[in-house]
């Protein structure tokens, strides 16, 4: 099983690295990271903070773009180009195909984030700025966030067209960024106040908000960039958040596999 998943993943990686769009995005990311030097020159006494902040933003932003742009066509293109006939007729389970495609894209993202991070950290070193371990942790948590986004793109690609997949994934990404606010909203609804007692409707709404927050990806769990740049202590358990990310990814890939397993390839 692992051999087949690896074969699909390697092939997906090979396909992705021959995709020109990847290099365009990577080039833009590099330009932005290096451009942060210019931006920092315009600020007063905030050089280090701006360079660190812009660099982390570039890694995340372009990482998400790569995950969405490459991920949305991941499975759809196999159907569109009819390469799926050759693959599905081989002795492999359909879930192995989905996992192979997913891991192939994750490999692509790892390489890209690796390149962007190397440039980013080299820039910091050249400028003589400190590179605290939390900065590395922030990059690793960004990778976890990108893994979740990749899983979502894979899911939508398993039953939808690239354009719709892009829209769905992007919408879920935005919603995932706001789930913290949703949880905060729910806890406020449940807070007893003298002038505003908690009603049944409040409870119902809070419960609905919490349920939705469990369905949506809680992407802010992987965002420690602000803390890393500003030296703010991290209160969350990164281990637990990583575990959450892995479990969420597992669930999404399970749904993607089920969707894909039921498809007829006319």
């Amino acid at each position: 099983m692992l051999g087949r998943i690896l074969a699909i993943a390697t092939n997906t990686f090979r396909e992705a690295i021959r995709n020109k769009i990847l290099y365009i995005l990577l080039a833009f990311a590099m330009v932005l990271i290096i451009f942060s030097i210019v931006m920092s020159a315009l600020s007063i006494g905030q050089d280090e903070k701006i360079i660190k902040d812009v660099g982390l933003f570039a890694i995340t932003f372009f990482g998400v773009l790569i995950a969405i742009m490459v991920g949305i066509g991941l499975i759809y293109n196999e159907l569109d180009k009819r390469t799926i006939y050759v693959i599905v007729s081989k002795p492999l389970h359909r879930y192995e195909f989905v996992l192979g495609k997913f891991f192939g894209l994750v490999m692509t993202i790892l390489v890209n984030v690796g390149i962007m991070s190397a440039v980013y950290l080299a820039l910091l070193a050249v400028k003589g700025y400190s590179i605290p371990f939390v900065l590395i942790e922030a990059i690793l948590m960004t990778v976890m966030e990108l893994v979740v986004v990749t899983a979502l793109a894979t899911l939508f690609s398993s039953f939808s067209t690239p354009i719709l997949s892009a829209v769905y994934t992007f919408m879920l990404y935005i919603a995932g960024k706001l789930t913290d606010d949703l949880i905060r909203f729910a806890s406020q609804m449940m807070t007893e106040k003298a002038y505003d007692p908690v009603t049944v409707a409040d409870k119902l709404m809070a419960k609905t908000a919490i349920s939705i927050s469990w369905i949506l990806p809680q992407l802010e769990k992987f965002n420690i960039r602000n803390q890393a740049v500003n030296g703010i202590p991290i209160t969350d358990s990164l281990m637990m958040n990583t575990l959450y990310g892995l479990l969420y990814t597992g669930c999404i890939l399970f749904i993607a596999s089920v969707c894909f397993s039921k498809r007829n390839f006319k």
């Binding site: 092939n11 009819r82 050759v86 007729s89």
Partner: peptide
Amino acid sequence: GFLPENPYFYDYL
């Protein structure tokens, strides 16, 4: 072994 009609393969390979 299977050869599909008008076989489409990964053309970048």
